[in-house]
Amino acid sequence: MTNSIESAAREGALADVAVLMPAYNGQADVERTLASFKEEAPVYALIVDDGSTPPIVAPDVPGMHIEILRMPKNGGIERALEAGIDALAERGFRYAARIDAGDLAFAHRLAKQRARMEASPTLAALGMWTQVVNRAGEPLFMLRPAADPARLRRERLLRSPMAHPSVMLRVDAVKAVGNYRAKYPAAEDLDLFLRLMDRYECANLPEPGLYYELNEGGISATKRRRQIVSTLRLQLVHFNALNWRDWAGLAKSLLHFVTPYRALQRVKRVLLA
């Protein structure tokens, strides 16, 4: 990237927004994802290379300044995101827009989210509806989490409050609650969202903002079980016995633990299509 693009990215309408993408290998997915951003202002992106072999190389994307932060070794997405937030805070960015390699952004996603967060200073995180697709790009189902902060707080243990790769985060709020952490492996997003909701508001824009690629062949049973165990631990920590949704959320997690992954995806396609 040229210095002129970097300068424009720090002076334009999205000057205080940074795309935050952790990556472990998958150069082609990194390139495809970054190329999907269509905004009317220059965009800055920080790729946290989590020990890729060979290392991730910054692609040349018109209108985008891309920086790579290299982790000394592969330490997992939790530590990569923690390092990314720290780096963005040091660089003076106010907002971090999450996305994962392989996912695609809807046009003007960043501008829409920034406008809402500027208009709602109490918001610490803002997600968007997410179109789940297969590896061929064919639609499977739409994730439509609640838009209202109060409803989201009530249902936070019943269903995922926000689709993590669709979320824009207020960097100072993330730092204030302790940043991403590795205490709950594979559930670092829910851990962060729950801590943010204890002190701030979180919401969703009720419109599509992300194409999320579901790679069923890449899901390992070990990671899935680790995620469910971490989710159960978080549900117990934040459990409110007076909220029936928390009881339902516990039951749902236990059901997920004993139900095959592919069977769950078939159910989602029927219920959410």
Rank of each mutant, 00 (worst) to 15 (best):
N3D: 11
S4W: 04
S7I: 09
S7G: 00
A8K: 14
A9R: 04
A13C: 00
A13F: 05
D16H: 10
V17W: 02
V19H: 09
Y24N: 04
Y24Q: 08
G26L: 10
G26D: 14
G26Q: 12
A35H: 09
F37E: 08
F37P: 09
E39W: 11
E40L: 08
A41C: 03
P42N: 01
P42R: 00
Y44A: 10
S52F: 10
I56F: 04
G63C: 09
I68Y: 07
L69R: 01
M71C: 13
K73C: 13
I77N: 11
R79P: 01
L81I: 06
L81Y: 09
E82R: 01
A83V: 00
D86L: 04
A89W: 12
A89T: 05
E90T: 00
R91E: 13
F93G: 05
R98Y: 13
R98Q: 13
I99W: 12
A101V: 06
D103K: 06
L104S: 11
A105I: 07
A105K: 05
R114Y: 00
A115V: 09
A119G: 02
S120Y: 08
A124R: 05
A125M: 04
A125I: 02
L126F: 01
L126I: 04
L126H: 02
G127D: 04
W129Q: 04
A136K: 08
E138A: 05
P139C: 06
P139W: 05
R144E: 01
A146M: 01
A146P: 07
D148S: 01
R151Q: 03
L152S: 06
L152D: 05
E155I: 05
R156H: 00
L158Y: 10
L158D: 07
M162C: 15
H164R: 11
S166C: 13
L169Y: 15
V171F: 06
D172T: 10
K175D: 12
A176T: 12
A176Q: 14
G178Y: 15
G178W: 15
N179E: 11
K183L: 12
Y184A: 04
P185H: 07
P185V: 09
A186T: 08
L196S: 03
L196H: 03
R199I: 08
Y200E: 03
C202R: 08
N204M: 03
E207K: 08
P208C: 06
G209T: 14
Y212R: 15
Y212W: 15
N215V: 02
E216T: 15
I219C: 12
I219Q: 15
I219N: 13
S220Q: 13
I228Q: 14
I228N: 14
R233L: 11
Q235L: 07
L236V: 06
V237F: 10
N243A: 10
N243R: 09
W244C: 10
R245I: 03
R245A: 11
W247G: 06
L250S: 00
L250T: 08
L250K: 02
A251P: 03
K252S: 09
K252E: 05
L254P: 00
T259H: 03
Y261S: 04
